[in-house]
Design a protein around this nucleic acid. Structure first.
Lengths: 331, 331
DNA sequence: TTGTAGGCGTTATCAG
DNA sequence: CTGATAACGCCTACAA
């Protein structure tokens, strides 16, 4: 059996109150008793039971992270960053990979509430507003509007779309395609698409919007990309994420289309992994560390003052463009 | 305030016992009262408090996952798989990225124990045996011996090293180098190295062992790899992980060394991500899903019968070789 | 400076 | 079939 407070108290020859006092470091305690108690705890290898303390009203220091999947390098890096920031603040993380699964997301939400987590970072968005409002916990959202009560942190998706088109245009492309998720309300892709469209308009070019479902298997995606490349006159492609962009590069290679001479390609996300292991890809870089930091800070604020009205509903962080060989021949 | 059992009881006009009965579905209850209670719960949006139930002796259904980092695609895929399997069994996951940080790993261990998790999957191994023995919780380890009481699941690292050498030899390489982590006791790389050495011996070839620290930055790694390639006569390289292998391919490209004609390269891990986005890399594929499943199953067994002596100390899962263009020119 | 006792939200053992 | 009530391990007024 695990040692409990009373065991320590008995061993140290004091009352539980005293032990509790040294653990939580409050009230008056003589140096001698404190040491006694400390020793007793060491000897018994005593660990206070978090459940019991939390039950009493102390917070659990647990935060739930709901994201689609950590197999996507972008989410992996974001989640890892968030975990680091939270750890530094004394929080521990419950990982909830919701996939595209409404039920799993709902079940996780229920579980997080049952486990009395202090707050939630929501990055998967299969569910509607109602379910998130029900929860009654501090929540911050990544990249999607969930409710009037839930602040949103995201990068400047609109500018991302704009920068990509400007880059391709500058590189000489005049038939610029958009390749990404199917349109869906509230999806970050929407803003990227808007940036794309507006900028094309500015240049007096025609829109070409192609959708590849995010959930489709990569080989299917690759197939439809090859179809697109061989049937179209595209000389520039704005992809809504890096992985899709890499598939475009692969397809181009197979079809002997020269990058960037015949076709220029941009990605979106700019994870370290892709930057390092696909150094040929030009891309829009999201400030992952800043996003993580802001998510954590805003969440902390909500946890500290859950009743306070939101100071700010939407936080938008700047993106940067990383030029590599897929748009301009360098060195 | 969150509704509690007594609120539901009051609303339904019954006692807490009765409510508890319908929640846990045991004992006799009339259909009518059951419905009453159900309705009351719905109306109040009642969620039982896990802390309280666990405090009473019920398990928390929480499992701690300690891994170095989910930024490495291999761990990302493994952790995601484990999370899926655990979710299916009703467990929730606390994510602990320990990095190379002894203190963080120790702190996480302490926290997991304090939070009364049901068990731990340990995949980061900065700490020694004593600390893991102290915990007094069901633990399973991935790829490293932690103690006599902790079962190990791993892939057949030795055969992996062997297969890699055999492939390179078959492809015509005679100056076969080993590139990976520095040697360290208990490290899975050790077995891969052993497989490499034994097989070279069998072929009557000389060992060439080069170490790149796992924790080094990729650009430093790339630098030392280029140095290696330009100074050596290597015509085959066994890498201990895919990411290193990709760096070798990059270095070769920069140095205008033709793959596979002049240099043949194998990786290790075989994640889906690398298979898809680096389809040119031959590699040893670890059975990630099977590993995850086995980790979860063995852990479940330990949780069910913590006192039982271990049935088996070591579980080794077979690896497979995936042949791609980095060893043999295909199609 | 230290100890006693009640309560946090549930479960489970007894009686009714 | 249902209801009191004593735990679970810890915290914290209130006493001493």
């Amino acid at each position: 059996m695990r040692p409990k407070l009373t065991d320590v108290a008995k061993k140290a020859g004091v009352s539980v109150t005293t032990v509790s006092r040294v653990i939580n470091d409050y009230g008056y305690i003589s140096q001698k008793t404190r040491e006694n108690v400390m020793n007793a705890m060491k000897e018994l290898n005593y660990q206070p039971n978090s459940l019991a303390r939390s039950l009493h009203g102390k917070s659990t220091n647990l935060v739930g992270l709901i994201f689609p999947s950590i197999n996507n390098p972008f989410f992996a890096e974001l989640v890892e960053m968030i975990e680091q920031k939270l750890f530094a603040e004394g929080y521990k993380v419950i990982l909830c990979n919701a996939g595209n699964d409404k039920d799993k997301e709902r079940e996780y939400l229920r579980m997080l509430s049952a486990n009395q987590v202090d707050g939630i970072v929501a990055g998967a968005h299969n569910l509607g507003i109602e379910e998130y409002n029900q929860v009654g916990l501090p929540i911050v959202s990544f990249d999607r509007k969930l409710s009037d009560q839930i602040p949103i942190i995201s990068c400047d998706n609109y500018t991302g779309g704009k920068l990509a088109v400007e880059e391709l245009y500058a590189a000489g492309a005049r038939h610029i395609y958009f390749l990404g998720n199917p349109h869906q309300n509230g999806n970050p892709t929407d803003q990227r698409l808007a940036g794309y469209c507006d900028t094309l308009d500015r240049f007096g070019l025609t829109h070409h919007i192609h959708t590849v479902s995010f959930s489709e298997s990569p080989s299917l995606k690759l197939f439809s990309i090859k179809k697109l490349l061989s049937e179209s006159v595209a000389d520039g492609i704005v992809c809504t994420d890096d992985l899709t962009a890499i598939l475009v590069l692969q397809a181009a290679k197979e079809l002997q289309i020269k990058i960037p001479e015949q076709l220029k390609v941009t990605g979106f996300d700019g994870t370290k992994l892709v930057q390092i292991y696909h150094p040929e890809l030009s891309t829009i870089v999201q400030p992952i560390e800043d996003i993580a930091l802001l998510l954590v800070n805003v969440l902390k604020e909500r946890i500290a003052q859950p009743k306070e009205p939101l100071k700010q509903m939407q936080y938008t962080l700047p993106v940067t463009f990383l030029r590599r060989n897929s748009t301009f021949k360098l060195n």
